[in-house]
Amino acid sequence: MALLEARDIVAGYGETQILHGVSLVVNEGEIVTIIGPNGCGKSTFMKAVVGLVRVRTGSVTFRGTDITDYPPERVVRTGLCYVPQSANVFPSLSIRENLEMGAFIRGDDARARIDEMFGLFPDLARRPTARAGSLSGGQRQMLALARALMLDPVLLLLDEPSAGLSPAIMGMVFERIREINATGVALLLVEQQAREALQVSDRGYVLSGGENRLEDGGPALLDNPEVARLYLGG
């Protein structure tokens, strides 16, 4: 059964409409990647799903519940967590405090879960009281991932997790993504680094001009000559 199903999403900012009817499905345990040229609406699509951008027409269903009009703080409670592209940590809070905030809606004590996260991201465990604003780009990305994982999400939405990272660190991020997926969390990625992302993905979507263009398995998209020419740099 589909975990997340978005149907014919139309959304935009103010009078500008960016998405003209995008549909997408994420199944349980899958990694799905959205690729497409700049400005095609990838990020907007994610924001529409989590409720940061209002969906004008169309519907979003998550685990059988219609969450189309949920505000972001309610979407989180359904088990869907989102990591924005940049500015995805609270810079003036310490690493530990960032993780505590990630667990804000958990009723129980978050300490055990924080220790788990420190196990998964040993880099963060080294200086738990350091301010997030003082971290490097890669460390921030890890912290943002860890923060989103604090809630044990069923589905994780990552907006360009590799943005602004060096190739080595980027590799590490995708490594982590695979590990997270191995624990049963489904992931939906938006990526500019189409090749790396598709390699770890089960399926991929190509958006263009705010509409669906292509949909196929990850490796299949990699082999698709048109995709290769347009988005993989030949």
């Binding site: 989590v50 940061l52 505000p71 972001p72 703080e73 979407v75 989180v76 409670r77 967590c81 989102y82 924005p84 500015a87 995805n88 940590v89 609270f90 905030m101 990630g102 804000f104 809606i105 923060r147 989103a148 809630l151």
Partner: peptide, 8 residues
């Protein structure tokens, strides 16, 4: 905005 998507 980040606070909202974090569930705060």
């Amino acid at each position: 905005d980040l606070a909202r998507v974090t569930g705060i």
